[in-house]
Design a protein around this nucleic acid. Structure first.
Lengths: 361, 361
DNA sequence: TTGAAAGCGCTAACAT
DNA sequence: ATGTTAGCGCTTTCAA
């Protein structure tokens, strides 16, 4: 015996068949006499035997591996905060259950190539992170029979995909409601990436609630962004050169809100005293930026955790019916949004930009 | 034939042996007659055949999979900015070369368990991300014969590990040199996590350069941190209640510098007018915080990319000699560090905290 | 209570 | 130019 010890080596040393060794090492000792079990266990230990998971996967026809797939559109982890949180949740669920994680970041959008990569027999299922409109990941059904769960994109039903996402609609609605309650009527909006369903959902919720309150939407206050902080900044630039300004601007995510606020600082426009700004996501990094951003907090970790749970459930039960799960968000009121009427009453030109950590309501 | 098509199905349909099909599908068409090759290719295409990578791995005795292992100490991706950058570099190198990535975040520090998980026959090699002192990852040699590369920790030679890291020593030295050039003599330091080699290297470089310039080190200005922004803040609190203050504080990373600066803002101590602060890492998130932080920029993406390259080289050549590769950093001068003498001459109690994006020298 | 035998789907010497 | 054969290391009936 040279190289890594195999089951055969263990069996030989314990003086038994390979079957016996296999059974005992899989925890079926009760089938055998006490001393047989001991002999095998000892032999394995002495040899430093570790089952070869590739061979095991082939024989069992399951790999105990889940793929986590990032959409080619945002395959750079570095800039994808959302993916970190979700991935942590996925890992937290899968790791203790002895599932392995294969991280796949396709560099192409050719669906055949993408799926050849993903479903090549080495995984039992996949979690798709925030597939965007037109993504080859969504062509799943044509290329794979594996169970799949999408997170971070609430897709139209026809995709027949299990999904876990936050409730963008309800969360944005509560943000808009609250802002209106604060007395704001002149409300601007910075939209998210046009290929993200979440962007459309957030915008739609905004428009709906505005309509419900009979507040007209000024299209010149509806700015296009792409969820990146740069577009938040340019939205600010674009907005602030207008004659009439909204009293508050809702950004479709925190990054854009940060960009927006920083541009305001550059232009020496105090937030929230001259203009209020709200974000969406309550992102880890935004929180430590010293900007007390009013935003919507939601549990991305939980999204990953649940997605993994659903996937494993589908694997174990074979129940392939698409499930959908929406996780509610929570409004976090900090200090980047001021009362509209108070502002009107007591304008304070010397107020400084707030830079302290926010306290939650 | 039911279930996924196998090589056997392809061979049957093409009317040839399995070997022939295998060879042709692996690109060895030149061994066969033109029409044979076509028949096989067509058959495979018509059936939608995709080679099962598990079976292939078993037969080839290589898996074309690399593990990326996070130290149990900082296994939460969310808070590990360093890992994102490195991972992106690793992915960028490996993905086009058809290597897969297995992400492993052990939840225990028991070396046997950790390595059972990592080296179970499913990978060809591993990249260890920033193993800390005492990490079970470092016990590699006792548990595995796989090629391994460590990144983010410049380890003592006795670990016999291939390594890619930034040159902490030189980079911190140049930071200290520069600060001294700016006229600073009263210099404080916030140390990094005591279990990280990088923290010690950065501190050691600091002390050395100070000694070279004959500047005494005041131990009460040497604060312990852990690379987290909270400890930067508490270091600031602790320092600022002292009677005598340094004119500049060097933080062992950006996160602590951010925490430090934010605490200064809270206490209404203007940076850099009352006290200068420098960081280390030039992190993506710090850059967009609107703090023009003077820091050391270094290419973490490159670290990951090179680590993957070295690993693949070792796999292909079988050359297992440990390699070490240090990547230089570059000083990035922004505005959080002021000239010491100018300060002394023109103290300005009303100066505000700077919040604009920094311009690089 | 134990073991023989037939795979899992593919690769690679070695024939022919 | 193509096929035969013997694995890779493990699991799992099924028989003894």
């Amino acid at each position: 015996m040279r190289g890594k010890p195999t089951l055969r080596d263990v069996a030989e040393r314990a003086g038994c068949s390979i079957t016996t060794a296999s059974n005992i090492l899989q925890g079926r000792s009760h089938l055998y006499r006490e001393d047989m079990a001991q002999r095998v266990l000892n032999a394995a230990h002495e040899l430093g035997y570790r089952a070869n998971s590739v061979a095991r996967s082939l024989a069992r026809r399951r790999t105990a591996t889940i793929a986590v797939v990032l959409d080619p559109q945002h395959a750079r982890l570095t800039h994808n905060v959302y993916a970190h949180d979700v991935l942590d949740g996925v890992l937290a669920y899968l790791e203790p259950r002895d599932y392995d994680i294969r991280l796949i970041t396709p560099r192409t959008n050719d669906p055949a190539a993408v799926w050849r990569r993903i479903d090549n027999g080495s995984i039992d299922g996949a979690i798709l992170i925030a597939p965007v409109m037109g993504s080859s990941l969504l062509e799943w059904r044509h290329y794979s029979t594996l169970p799949v769960v999408a997170v971070g994109s609430t897709l139209p039903d026809e995709y027949l995909l299990s999904q876990v996402d936050i409730d963008n609609d309800a969360a944005m609605a509560s943000m808009v409601e609250w802002v209106i309650q604060q007395g704001h009527r002149a409300i601007g909006f910075v939209k998210g990436h046009p290929l993200h369903w979440s962007a459309h959902q957030r915008e739609r919720a905004f428009r709906r609630v505005m309509a419900q309150h009979g507040i007209p939407i000024r299209e010149e206050w509806m700015l296009q962004g792409d969820y990146g902080s740069e577009t938040g900044a340019s939205a600010a630039a674009q907005l602030l050169r207008q004659d009439e300004l909204p009293s508050v601007v809702l950004c479709a995510n925190d990054e854009m809100a940060i960009g927006f606020i920083q541009k305001c600082r550059d232009l020496e426009i105090p937030v929230p005293d001259a203009i209020s700004v709200a974000g969406f996501d309550d992102s880890y990094w935004a929180r430590r930026m010293g900007i007390a951003l009013t935003t919507v907090q939601h549990d991305r970790y939980q999204v990953g955790y649940l997605a993994a749970q659903i996937l494993l459930h589908q694997l174990e039960t074979g129940d392939a019916r698409p499930q959908r799960m929406l996780i509610p968000g929570a409004l976090v009121v900090r200090r980047s949004v001021a009362l509209a009427n108070v502002l009107a009453a007591v304008p304070d030109p010397h107020a400084t930009i707030l830079t302290e950590g926010g306290s939650r309501l």
